[in-house]
Design a protein around this nucleic acid. Structure first.
Length: 397
DNA sequence: TTGGAGTCAATAGG
DNA sequence: CCTATTGACTCCAA
């Protein structure tokens, strides 16, 4: 059988430091008004023998994040479900985070325990088709509540929302109750005056350009350099610092994406080279080091991929017989709950459309060049640090 | 302290 | 409404 369910039972618990179960009270959007200590969000699957998700995350086998997000996106769009509702009620994340996650999932092996959590939740959610129905119900209820509110408010005053027992997710329900909230609480608690919000900095295109150029010179600018940049661009130092943090982080993620896509097998479709990458900027050049772009890529010769190359690419076999082996009902003899939940990787990668995402690990790939360049920058940075010296430079604007 | 990871939430476009 | 982008922030580890 060509399909080899990865069924990797390998241990992922390697050297994980102690985990602190930080927990926050969460109430589930469903009937039980009580939140059981341990499970922030109502886990999609009821019978988890009291396992907290972090425990499940720790025990989870390797998941194909790309396949999962692909499937989730498909399910959401097919059913007209939005990222907001899905994120808030299923993942405990805000819409923006969900969008990001779905658009650029990092490969499983590059995720921290925390980062894996959303993917485990998604997988769990996908495992039971009934979950979609539930979400749709929630959506309906939300709309209903909205209509109601709209009416009453017009007529007279207010809201008094309290009512909504159990399943209200109108607005009080889910959005905030996850553990991360202390974060925003802090941020928002600075609302002494009804309107003192910091106006969110929006960098002008030229400023971003300049910062990108500076990044290409030095991905890890020294404090001194940062100061200079800040003053020259007339930005706060902290803004420049944040920009570099974010940019590095996002560049890194781009590389992961390419890695995944490459591993999933490319080629098939109409070239589809994601080379677009934003109208501007686009790293591409790594300044420094020798680049020696001498690679001849004579059409036709695909040297380096001779052996082990992921098979299936374009065209998928229609027909998705393999349905979700629901874990409900009979208990597993010994495979364990986890197995029943995750042990069916095929179900995900077998998404009705495009089964492509081949879980194969196949690091060898041309796109790795950029990654290497990035690593080089990193190394350079550290060497400079070690040498403890700051050198001149010049970013002309 | 610095950098990375993960997010939030404001906001720009549809 | 919804989604994508992105500056800022929290938490952690080195």
């Amino acid at each position: 059988a060509p399909e080899s369910p990865l069924s990797s039972a390998e241990e992922s618990v390697k050297s994980q430091q102690e985990e602190q179960m930080c927990q926050a009270s969460i109430q589930e959007p469903s009937e039980t008004s009580e939140s059981q200590p341990g499970t922030p969000l109502p886990l999609p699957l009821p019978g988890h023998a009291g396992l907290s998700i972090q425990e499940m995350v720790a025990m989870s086998p390797e998941l194909d994040t790309y396949a999962i997000t692909k499937k989730v996106k498909e399910v959401l769009t097919d059913n007209n479900l939005g990222q907001r509702l899905f994120g808030e009620s299923i993942l405990g994340l805000t819409q923006g985070s969900v969008s990001d996650l779905l658009a650029r999932p990092k490969p499983w092996h590059k995720l921290s325990l925390k980062g894996r959590e959303p993917f485990v939740r998604m997988q769990l959610w996908l495992n039971d088709p009934r979950n979609v129905e539930k979400l749709m119900d929630m959506k309906r209820m939300e709309k209903k509540a909205y209509m109601k509110r709209r009416h009453s408010s017009i007529g007279e005053s207010h809201l008094l929302e309290s009512g909504l027992s159990g399943s209200d997710l109108t607005q009080s329900a889910s959005p905030q109750n996850l553990s991360q909230q202390h974060q925003q609480q802090q941020q928002q608690q600075q609302q002494h005056q009804p309107h003192l919000k910091k106006p969110r900095v929006v960098l002008a295109p030229e400023e971003k350009e300049a910062l990108k150029r500076a990044y290409q010179q030095k991905p890890y600018p020294s404090p001194k350099t940062i100061e200079e940049l800040a003053s020259q661009l007339n930005l706060k130092t902290s803004t420049v610092i944040n920009w570099f943090h974010n940019y590095r982080s996002r560049i890194r993620r781009e590389l992961f994406i390419e890695e995944i896509q490459a591993a999933a097998g490319e080629g098939g479709s109409p070239s589809a080279r994601p080379g677009k990458s934003g109208g501007e900027g686009d790293n591409s050049c790594d300044g420094t080091e020798s680049d020696s772009t001498a690679e001849g890529r004579p059409s036709g010769s695909e040297e380096r991929r001779g052996l082990l190359e992921s098979p299936n690419l374009s065209h998928r076999d229609e027909e998705g017989e393999a349905e979700f082996p629901s874990a409900s009902g009979t208990s597993r003899p010994r495979g364990g709950i986890i197995d029943s939940l995750f042990g069916i990787p095929e179900s995900v990668s077998t998404a009705p459309a495009t089964a492509t995402a081949t879980p194969c690990r196949n690091p060898k790939d041309s796109s790795l060049r950029k990654k290497k360049a990035a690593n080089l920058n990193n190394i350079i940075h550290r060497l400079e640090k070690a040498a403890n010296r700051d050198e001149p430079h010049e970013w002309e604007f």
